[in-house]
């Protein structure tokens, strides 16, 4: 038990990332409100990004940009995870934008953002068809 806790504390960034991911996943799955689902999705993605960013960062090292000459491999961090996070953020933003526009459309039609309510409202139409 103590070993587990100390392992978690040593890797607190990764632990936090996984906790964030699970919180987001739960929100996305179980919240009825579409906006809250979207917030959940963003928290979930943030969890993944934190995981990536914490992997790329090494305490005491700098970004690999040469300002005053090359200082050796030991002086720089790995820039790839940061690049991945940036790409991931762009993807996440565009997905959020599309989902928000869908939410607006849904709200205009059914005057509610609760997916379960909308489902009930449209259920009779679905069954009749």
């Amino acid at each position: 038990m103590r070993e587990t806790i100390s392992a978690l504390l040593a890797n607190y960034e990764e632990a936090a990332a996984i906790i964030l991911f699970v919180i987001g996943l739960t929100m996305l799955l179980f919240h009825g409100n579409l906006i809250k689902k979207l917030i959940g999705m963003n928290i979930m993605d943030t969890g993944s990004f934190l995981f990536l960013a914490s992997m790329g960062y090494i305490d005491g090292r700098k970004a690999p940009i040469l300002v005053d000459g090359y200082r050796g491999v030991e002086d720089y961090i790995n820039p790839v995870p940061a690049g991945l996070v940036l790409t991931g953020i762009v993807v996440s933003v565009s997905v959020t934008a599309v989902m928000l526009s869908l939410s607006i459309r849904l709200y205009r039609r059914y005057h509610t953002l609760n997916v379960d309510d909308v489902y009930l409202l449209s259920r009779h139409q679905l069954e009749d068809r």
Binding site: F21, G24, L25, L28, L29, L34, K37, M41, M44, D45, G47, S48, F51, L52, G88, V95, V98, M99, L102, S103, R105, L106, R109, Y110, V115, V118, Y119, S122, Q125, L126
Partner: peptide
């Protein structure tokens, strides 16, 4: 209307799938 609802459900599930896929890749 139904298409919008279907799209919302489709997207929510797909986002769930994408999120898990991203975590797997990471």
């Amino acid at each position: 209307g139904r298409t919008t609802l279907a799209a919302v459900r489709y997207m929510v599930l797909n986002l769930l799938g994408s999120g898990l896929f991203l975590l797997g890749v990471v």
